[in-house]
């Protein structure tokens, strides 16, 4: 038997299959299945490049002896994780990040929603007030930080005169641990609260007017109208905004860099800043920074999972 004959004999069943109408259908079906896959290829490649590669590389750095100069030197197991957790600053920074994100989210959502309700009571349009509201939001966070830091400067700052008049010469809220943390929280709220206001205002526009009027005709007061008519209508949107605000709260970094640099002491050292400082500023310990990132991601994921479950339950109840 020649080579060609052998090959043909081996291909026999396939060729036979292809020669039947069933084979044609199979070929067509396979081709049809391939088309959507081909359409998805750019997304898959993009995902691989933007998500999978950095994640694998991050894990690689986290489990190896790595610094900015020489990444991926030697497999070290969980050493970087233990180093991060034993460091002076990191464990505290996780707690601080969770507290900051939670407090910032509550503040931003409560104040933002209250403001949206007030604005909705004025009418259907935000007008000039909308533009004013957007200002903190469109200002780059670094500029926000610089401006606030200058205003808070104990000598020559915008508030220095006020402090002086009330007998607090040289007072700087950024000078104490609690003061610095609260100040950062307030600046963050000032910047992101308008986003919540605008999103909740948009949700409020969808609350049927006739329902509100009907409730009012039935003698419902403002609180009852809000509780039984408005809140059920906007609850889903507010939960979505809350999740968004929580993510933003965990992400805060630029304000810390500009306003406090994590100080005084470690009082405003949030995890994001610790990771940056460890990996890229002064010490270049990329391995420890990557391990800290993995731990931080796990903590954020756990918090988000809990909030997700709470949201699901709240939405299901509605």
């Amino acid at each position: 038997m020649t080579v060609a004959e052998t090959t043909r004999a081996e291909r026999g069943p396939v060729l036979a299959l292809r020669s039947t109408s069933a084979g044609r259908r199979w070929r067509v079906a396979r081709g049809t299945r391939r088309v959507p896959f081909l359409f998805a290829v750019p997304s898959i490649v993009g995902l691989m490049l933007l998500m999978v590669y950095p994640t694998v590389y991050l894990l690689g750095l986290a489990f190896t002896e790595s610094n900015l100069a020489r990444p991926l030197q030697r497999w070290t197991g969980i050493t970087n994780f233990t180093d991060a957790l034993r460091s002076t600053a990191f464990p505290g920074s996780i707690g601080r990040s969770v507290v900051f994100a939670a407090a910032a989210t509550v503040l931003v959502v409560v104040v933002g929603t209250a403001l949206a309700l007030l604005l909705r009571a004025r009418g259907d349009r935000l007008g000039v007030l909308g533009v004013v509201l957007l200002l903190p939001l469109v200002t780059p966070p670094v500029m926000v930080g610089v401006a606030w830091k200058l205003m808070l400067a104990p000598v020559g700052g915008a508030f220095a005169g006020i402090w002086s008049r009330v007998g607090l010469d040289g007072f700087n809220p950024l000078g104490s641990s609690t003061g610095a943390f609260l100040t950062l929280l307030l600046i963050y709220t000032w910047q992101w609260m308008p986003l919540v206001t605008i999103l909740v205002f948009a949700a409020l526009l969808d609350v049927p007017r006739d329902l509100v009027e009907a409730a009012q005709l039935d003698g419902a007061g403002r609180i009852s109208v809000f509780r039984h008519v408005v809140w059920p209508a906007i609850r889903t949107s507010v939960w979505a905004v809350l999740v968004l605000a929580l993510v933003l709260g965990f992400k805060v970094f630029d304000l810390v860099v500009v306003v406090t640099s994590g100080g005084p002491g470690f009082s405003t050292m949030l995890s994001s800043f610790f990771i940056y400082r460890t990996g890229l500023q002064n010490s270049y310990e990329i391995g420890v920074a990557s391990a800290a990132t993995v731990i931080f991601v796990a903590v954020v994921s756990a918090v988000m999972a809990i909030v997700g479950i709470a949201r699901k339950r709240a939405v299901a109840e509605s």
């Binding site: 994640t55 694998v56 590389y57 894990l59 690689g60 489990f63 190896t64 020489r70 991926l72 497999w75």
Partner: peptide, 16 residues
């Protein structure tokens, strides 16, 4: 498991 394997591979690439 894949990530750990990839990490080992990456480590092998990290030369000096």
């Amino acid at each position: 498991t894949s990530a750990v394997a990839a990490t080992r591979l990456l480590t092998a690439c990290g030369g000096s």
